[in-house]
């Protein structure tokens, strides 16, 4: 009996890469997240949608503890990654962030060369082996389809790249550290449609190896690339289901109103 339970636990763990248990977030007295329970599956793309200020970005940033530096931030409840609570005292936040990468809304390359951008995450881990770094940079740039575009200019400033290229560089920089989870906070909202299409295609390929959570304001995008979609409103998780189901046949009236553009 006990053995069965263990096996069940393990499979659940494998399926549920990220878990939130009764999570509440406060900024001073303001309650930004009002008690959310959620399980996010491994090797799937999960999209967070909802109007501005609904708490989806705050919720996303809980998984790599990027809210820690925000003044007045306080959290209750548990966030588990592979069954481990990442808000326990002895958790090493730097180590956690190597496992949980993040891509931001606006492309934010460092004002350094393309090479230095990708190698940074490895160098700060103390890796100095030049040949290893070079291989890793090439591999990461190939993964995001940027290698052929930049291999001649690898030592030139990353700021000379186009917006779309910069964002792919930021994804490459994240991949170089070999995370298992990638959080994306509206990664295409500052890009033109062609660059957006490239990034979406890339995200779709990445789910084979990574668990991806993406915040987006673009409903079509959520529908196109995600396996699961969660709808947030006023700090609460209103509905969470397979994307196909949520976008075609939502359970809740609020969800339907939002996805059909009647509010938000």
């Amino acid at each position: 009996m006990k053995e069965n339970k263990d096996i069940l636990d393990k499979t659940l763990k494998r399926k549920h890469k990220l878990q939130a248990k009764d999570v509440k977030v406060f900024y001073d007295d303001f309650m930004a997240i009002k008690g959310i329970d959620m399980n996010i599956r491994a090797n799937k793309i999960t999209a967070f949608i909802g109007p501005s200020g609904c708490g989806k970005s705050t919720f996303l940033r809980l998984f790599n503890r990027m809210n820690d530096y925000v003044d007045g931030f306080r959290m209750e409840g548990e966030i588990l990654i592979d069954g481990e609570n990442i808000y326990k005292k002895k958790v090493n936040v730097e180590q956690l962030r190597k496992q949980v990468g993040m891509v931001f809304q606006k492309p934010n390359p460092f004002p350094k060369s393309i090479y230095e951008n990708v190698a940074y995450g490895l160098k700060i881990q103390g890796i100095k082996d030049k040949a290893f770094l070079k291989d890793k940079v090439e591999e990461s740039l190939k993964q995001v389809g940027l290698w052929n575009e930049v291999k001649e200019d690898i030592n030139k400033s990353a700021l000379a790249l186009s917006g779309g290229q910069q964002q792919r560089l930021c994804i490459a920089r994240t991949l170089a550290v070999e995370p298992s989870i990638i959080l994306m906070d509206e990664p295409t909202s500052a890009l033109d449609p062609i660059s957006t299409a490239k990034i979406e295609e890339l995200i779709y390929q990445l789910k084979e190896k990574y668990t991806i959570v993406i915040v987006t304001h673009n409903m079509q995008q959520a529908g196109r690339i995600s396996d699961y979609t969660a709808f947030f409103y006023m700090g609460e998780l209103i509905e969470y289901d397979k994307s196909k189901k949520l976008f075609t046949n939502p359970e809740k009236q609020q969800t339907e109103n939002y996805i059909t553009g009647r509010f938000g």
Binding site: N64, M66, Y69, E94, Q95, L96, R97, K98, G101, M102, F104, K106, N108, P109, F110, P111, Y120, G121, I124, Q125, C170, R173, T174, V177
Partner: peptide, 19 residues
């Protein structure tokens, strides 16, 4: 955004400041 990027890659505060 530079601080965010550095922290998100697992850099410590001092690494972010110095590098």
């Amino acid at each position: 955004s530079i601080r965010d990027a550095s922290f998100a890659l697992g850099a410590s505060k001092w690494q972010t400041v110095s590098q």
